[in-house]
């Protein structure tokens, strides 16, 4: 009879408010982590998607075989700062054109300078793509443990409370354990999407970086042929 009364009293709010302070703190920390990780996940979904479509459209424009000067002017004239392959192309072509005008510099040095400029832009682009991924990785690996810590603490608390009462019944420990398990649930809720998103974003960034690198090599070849 008692057990039924206890379970009917249990709502998700009473479970959270009834938990001990450390468990509540753990829950709060996990909730904030979860909010942040989802925020980053949405941001990254959009930015990576955008980088992919940008790369796609620029490569289409590049390989249709138009004039490189026209393409360069079209990119720099745009209001938006060029991203991805467009930014790499802009940096490489700018450096190449600048060095080309100075007749003293040898052709190999001109090529080397353009390569360096493209490499620097490439690193910057990849850094932007990689942003927040370490955070998602640590949320994915650590938050289950944080939740587990809250659970262990809550169960310890429940059993200590049990030791003070004379007769041990399940209905005396059950609410405490349920409260404690909420912490693990929140930890898992934060961790699972973070891990999935991390893996997905990491592979997307890898594929984009391969794409950028191959474009750099091909563009270097084209510049070499031109000079």
């Amino acid at each position: 009879m008692n057990a039924v009364n206890v379970t009917t009293d249990m709502s998700i709010f009473s479970l959270i408010t009834g938990a001990s302070l450390p468990v509540q703190l753990v829950m709060l920390a996990l909730l904030i982590t979860s909010l942040f990780s989802w925020w980053y996940i949405f941001i990254k979904v959009v930015t990576i998607k955008r980088a992919e479509t940008d790369a796609e459209s620029f490569e289409n424009a590049f390989w249709t075989g138009g004039d490189l000067n026209k393409l360069y002017e079209g990119i720099t004239a745009g209001r938006r700062k060029p991203q991805g392959t467009a930014a790499i192309f802009e940096a490489g072509f700018k450096e190449y054109a600048r060095n080309k005008q100075q007749s003293k510099i040898e052709i190999s040095d001109v090529m080397e300078g353009a390569r360096r400029a493209m490499r620097a832009t490439y690193n910057r682009e990849i850094d932007d793509l990689d942003a927040h991924l370490p955070f998602l990785a640590s949320v994915g690996s650590v938050s289950p443990y944080v939740g587990l810590f809250g659970t262990v603490w809550g169960i310890m608390h429940a059993f200590l409370g049990l030791a003070n009462t004379g007769q041990a019944t399940l209905s005396q420990v059950a609410p405490g354990i349920a409260e404690a398990l909420i912490a693990t649930a929140i930890g898992l809720f934060a961790a699972i999407p973070a891990v999935i998103a991390y893996n997905r974003f990491a592979s997307s960034v890898d594929r984009l970086s391969v794409r950028y690198e191959s474009f750099m090599e091909e563009f270097t070849n084209i510049l070499q042929r031109k000079s």
């Binding site: 989802w38 925020w39 949405f42 941001i43 930015t47 991203q83 932007d128 942003a131």
Partner: peptide
């Protein structure tokens, strides 16, 4: 967050809250 992500921040935040 990165500067190029600023315009997205609010929308992503709203999605997060909804989830």
């Amino acid at each position: 967050i990165r500067s190029h992500e600023n315009p997205l921040a609010l929308k992503a935040g709203a999605f997060t809250v909804i989830i």
